[in-house]
Write a protein that binds this DNA or RNA. Structure first.
Lengths: 201, 201
DNA sequence: TTGAATTAAACAAATGTTTAATAAAAAATT
DNA sequence: AATTTTTTATTAAACATTTGTTTAATTCAA
């Protein structure tokens, strides 16, 4: 299943990913990619047929990484709901601080490539252990009875949206990048608390 | 201050806005715009000098509308904090349902045009009546003492992010567009409740 | 009659892709 | 082991479109 990539292919993919993340599909040219990866222009088509195909490969891998990080935690058998919240916040915030363009890229290029990429999602979140645990809490009367989609959506919203709107936050608070990141580190503790307060009766 | 636009200029602007919102700056061509607005290609440059200039005008207006809706409510003198939360949720959700591409457009093109557009923000949110009311609650000991930036960020996150991630939500829940919108209408009531629970001691 | 609005055509630059030639590596043959 | 052959990788150049913008001519309105 997993393709073995040559050194040159990896160089192309790395440069392409960096550029696609920063500038998006349309604003990235094949010459940009060839320059950034220091390979001849024609090799892009030689190895990946077209810019579009190359993009689809990168989009698929990136989205898969993005979702996997969530699915792994959500389906862990041992941890409690609260532990899952903490781990998700922590992992995601670290991941996005390391690659700040990731969320904008994912949500933005997503609306163009619908079904093929979204196949990855197939029930892995709404049928996760985390949602089970939430539903158990509802049954026991400790959590409010609301469609779990809100629960799942709220977690991701509180984690990811601040990054997407970082230019606004940075402007409003006169932050520099480090101060913004500190704010996000702070949220690792806060988000699990907030989510619990939101669902508790 | 406000420029008076001729009929042709409005036709161009309307078509351009629709296209920029749907496809972004780079993926929209001047010929797309001329076709959609049914005007001659050269008129775009005749009236707006360049594609870039036209985009900046539209970006500025759109972002201004987007922020104004918030600022108005946040600075209302009469309403309580809870009422402001309800009104913001309601207004924003209606606005974005009417123009679903708005949030993605704003956040995505924002990172490219930083200062000029973000000037609009100048203290209008962090120094708003809403933030005052929040700080009062903190002083009175009814709200937790956390930097109000989290408060402001969380409101926007819970309102806007679900729209941005709508392809994911629609896929996870096997929703159609109407069912997704219903979910968002449901959140008009829920978000103010959630926010209050998050800040209460 | 003058200035503004509109048009078709043209221009130059950029862009994704292909071609044809060469270099390098691997395989086959002597 | 040495040489030839074949396959693969890399390159510079070219190709056909697309794209943003301009020109020069024409129509329209004041």
């Amino acid at each position: 299943m997993k393709k073995e990539y040559s050194e040159t292919e990896i160089k192309i993919k790395t440069a392409a990913k960096s550029l696609f993340l920063r500038k998006g599909y349309s604003a990235t040219t094949t010459r940009d990619i060839s320059k950034e990866s220091d390979i001849n222009l024609a090799l892009l088509n030689y190895y990946f047929t077209s810019k579009k195909k190359l993009f689809e490969i990168i989009m698929l891998e990136t989205f898969y990484d993005f979702i996997s990080k969530m699915v792994e935690v959500y389906n862990d058998e041992k941890s409690t709901l609260e532990e899952k919240l903490k781990l998700t916040s922590s992992k995601y915030i670290d991941m996005i601080i390391a690659e700040p363009h990731l969320p904008t890229f994912v949500v933005n290029e997503l609306k163009n490539n619908p079904s093929s990429i979204l196949k990855i999602l197939k029930g892995q979140i709404m049928e996760s252990k985390l949602v089970d645990q939430y539903n158990d809490g509802v049954k026991k009367g400790v959590y409010k009875k609301i469609d779990p989609i809100h629960f799942v959506t709220n977690i991701l919203s509180l984690i990811v949206f601040p990054f997407i709107s970082s230019p606004i936050i940075i402007k409003m608070k006169k932050f520099n990048r480090k101060e913004f990141n500190d704010m996000m580190h702070e949220r690792k503790k806060l988000i699990p608390q907030w989510i619990l307060q939101m669902i508790k009766k």
